Amino acid sequence: MSMFKVFDISGSAVSAQSQRLNVVASNLANVDTVAGPDGQAYKARQVVFQTVLMNASGAAAKGQAESPVTASAGVRVSNVTEDATPGRKVRDPSHPAADAEGYVTFSNVNAVEEMVNMISASRSYQNNIEVMNTAKSLLLKTLQMGQG
Score class of each variant (00 low, 15 high):
M3I: 06
M3K: 12
M3A: 12
F4N: 13
K5V: 01
V6F: 05
I9T: 15
S10M: 14
G11H: 12
S15C: 01
A16H: 09
A16T: 12
A25T: 09
A25K: 09
S26N: 14
S26F: 02
L28V: 10
N30M: 13
N30D: 01
D32I: 05
A41F: 08
Y42K: 06
Y42E: 05
Y42G: 00
K43D: 01
A44S: 03
Q46K: 09
Q46W: 00
V47W: 01
V48Q: 14
F49G: 11
T51K: 13
V52F: 02
M54Y: 00
A59L: 08
K62T: 15
K62R: 15
K62I: 12
G63R: 09
A65I: 01
A65N: 06
E66N: 04
E66V: 00
E66K: 00
A71M: 10
S72H: 04
N79P: 01
V80S: 03
V80E: 06
T81C: 03
A84D: 14
T85S: 12
R88T: 02
K89W: 08
P93W: 00
P93I: 06
S94N: 11
P96I: 11
P96H: 02
A97S: 12
E101N: 10
E101C: 06
E101S: 13
S107T: 07
S107C: 09
N108K: 06
V109G: 01
E114G: 10
E114N: 03
M115Q: 15
V116W: 15
I119Y: 05
I129A: 15
E130A: 15
V131N: 03
T134L: 08
A135R: 02
K136W: 04
L138C: 02
G146P: 10
G146Y: 10
